[in-house]
């Protein structure tokens, strides 16, 4: 049967991804350390009298679920694009050094207690982390730009080097700061989605929306790029522009995600492979499919993180690693068998 991506097939498959993701987004807020009563939530939501369950649902659980969905979706979509541009199936957004630089910024903000402030919707930790990520993107761009476009090898080397340097700087700061600050640092670096309302969520949008938009328009060009730069050029792709825009888009979206949720691993790595297995390798579908599936995956991981050791909760980064590691190994084994 034909595998060509027609408009009808695109709508059907993406509709299926979107519907299942929406179901997860709607259902998961009802579960947590305290179960919510469905009827009380609905009554509270649609009447003038607000109830406790409705308030918890609307102002506590729902923003968190939205954040999980947005962060997971962004990381997965970035991973899908980077795996093509960097010609590396193991690529994920953090390969660019964003995890290290974002963590360094956050740790720097946490090291100085006087810096724990809020500027509009942004906390100082978020702003410092964001600054670290953006500095990393700028550095990667500087190192990797050549007269012929972007050097993939230079990107990988620069990303690894930045992660190592930032790791060393974080260790130095941890050594110098007062021990009671170490808990906050460790907690941030494990990744978490515990936000307190829609304000934090809004702070993501100015970077994540343009970042993902830059990726979304290049699905067709990424298919061409998967055959190598020369083939893509021969087919009419402005390879240098696509590479730069994908790197910038990935940088912006991943920076926004890391600055608020910390470095959450594995989502950007395994979800795109899952989407390719479910619905084919055409990146016009892989990119939005990864967004939906990545969002749903992190939302479910977060549900596990906040229920499995209730009434306390686990950092979601631990759950994504526990779930993602074996899934990734299974994909690898199956691929080798095939």
């Amino acid at each position: 049967m034909t595998a060509l991506l027609t408009r009808r097939r695109f709508v059907l498959v993406l509709g299926a991804y979107a519907a299942s993701s929406a179901a997860i987004v709607v259902v998961t807020p009802f579960f947590g350390s305290e179960g919510l009563d469905f009827s009380e939530v609905f009554t509270g939501l649609f009447s003038t009298q607000s109830g406790i369950d409705a308030d918890i649902f609307l102002f506590h659980r729902l923003p968190r679920v939205f954040l999980a969905f947005l962060v997971g979706g962004a990381l997965a979509m970035c991973g899908a694009a980077l795996q093509v541009v960097l010609k590396n199936p193991l690529a994920e957004p953090f390969i660019l050094g964003i995890a290290g630089s974002g963590s360094l910024g956050a740790v720097a903000a946490l090291s100085v207690p006087g810096l724990l402030l809020h500027l509009g919707p942004f906390s100082s930790v978020q702003l410092f982390s964001l600054a670290g990520c953006l500095a990393c993107i700028w550095a990667i761009h500087r190192f990797a730009s050549t007269t012929m476009g972007v050097s993939v090898t230079a990107i990988l080397l620069a990303g690894v080097t930045i992660n190592i340097l930032c790791g060393a700087a974080i260790l130095l700061m941890r050594y110098l700061v007062s021990p009671h600050l170490l808990i906050a640092m460790d907690r941030w670096m494990m990744g978490g989605l515990d936000i307190v309302g829609y304000r934090d969520l809004l702070s993501l949008l100015p970077l994540i929306v343009p970042g993902l938009a830059l990726l979304a328009v290049h699905g067709s060009a990424l298919n061409q790029l998967s055959f190598g730069e020369e083939m893509a050029m021969g087919r009419g792709v402005d390879v240098s522009a696509v590479q730069k825009q994908v790197l910038l888009g990935t940088g912006l979206a991943a920076a926004a995600a890391v600055s608020l949720a910390g470095p959450i691993g594995f989502v950007g790595l395994i979800v795109p492979h899952g989407v390719r297995r479910f619905s084919g390798v055409d990146h016009r579908l892989v990119l939005p499919g990864s967004f939906c599936l990545g969002g749903a995956f992190l939302t479910v991981c977060d549900l596990v993180a906040r229920t499995v050791v209730a009434p306390t909760e686990m950092p979601v980064g631990i759950i994504t690693a526990i779930v993602g590691g074996p899934i990734f190994l299974r994909i690898l084994v199956k691929k080798n068998r095939d």
Partner: peptide, 17 residues
């Protein structure tokens, strides 16, 4: 139309794709 040496994809597209 240009067909370079070793045009290979890491992703397993179908022939018609």
């Amino acid at each position: 139309g240009y067909l370079p040496q070793d045009a290979e994809s890491r992703f397993d597209y179908s022939v018609e794709e």
